[in-house]
Amino acid sequence: MKGRNNSDKSSRRKFLRKLGTGIGVVSLTGVPGASVIAGSKTESGEKIKLLSPEGRLVEVDRENIRPARETTDYIKEEARKGLHGRKFVMVIDLAKCRNARKCVEACQEGHMLPKDHEWIKLYLLQDDRNTAPYWLPRPCFHCDKPMCVSVCPVGATYKRDDGIVLVDNQRCIGCKFCMTGCPYSARVFNWKDPEVNLPPGQAYDPETNIPPVEGTVGKCVFCADKLRRRELPRCVTACPMGVIYFGDLLEDSITNGEETVRFSKIMDERAGYRYREELGTLPSVYYLPPFQRLFPFERGLEDVDEETRLRYRDAGPR
């Protein structure tokens, strides 16, 4: 998977990933809008090549193909349900982070975000004069008691059964109440036309929030589209230090792409915690304290450009 040019493929795959749940495969080779019914009895013997949800070319009998409901409505309906029997969780090891910003870049590229939209943000924090400064990557926390979802007047943002909180930007009216509701500043607003060039007829998918819409809210989606393909979120795979772990809480297992560990064990051994537990939002993102850090925090200010350095000019004890 590494380094492959994914840009056109990912957009294509968005249509295609529903095979695992039963329906919805779209053709790559001239059978637009077709899908496969698993286990159909009759066969014509005539095979047609289709792209599977995993992105592989498969042969399917013509009889088993019927037009897919690959409309935006269908995608949105699936995106509201979430993945059955999963509860996603992220663990961020603050001891390893050195503000390399690869997570930000991968996220922006993968979600076609403009440069000034950061769904995952890097903060330089210092709790007090006498405590150590540290880097804190902050994605959306996908809280179990999400304030943003509670306050949404139209149900544009919602919590799925697998724990992911998404935004339907075709429903969002842009009241920004969720942005004031979120205590973690995790949401961004499309203040102007995002000017994203997309192939015409591209269906909207809340799992990527592509295409973005002016006057609506966007935020980290835990790469829900990749999870559907059993792939790790973009920030996890992009991180050169392996800072970000991701997994299914129910399986008690998290991985950063290199090593796989038990969630309960690492929480126990590394004294994992959640940011501002007292707020009672029950985040799905946990942090491991920056104990015996791999890099001095100053490293994070060395390899970045001037503009990035500028944003931390006022950082310090609060």
């Binding site: 997994g247 299914d248 399986e251 991985t255 792409g257 560990v261």
Partner: peptide, 8 residues
């Protein structure tokens, strides 16, 4: 086997 990887 786990969702994304193998847990030793």
């Amino acid at each position: 086997t786990r969702m994304f990887s193998l847990l030793p």
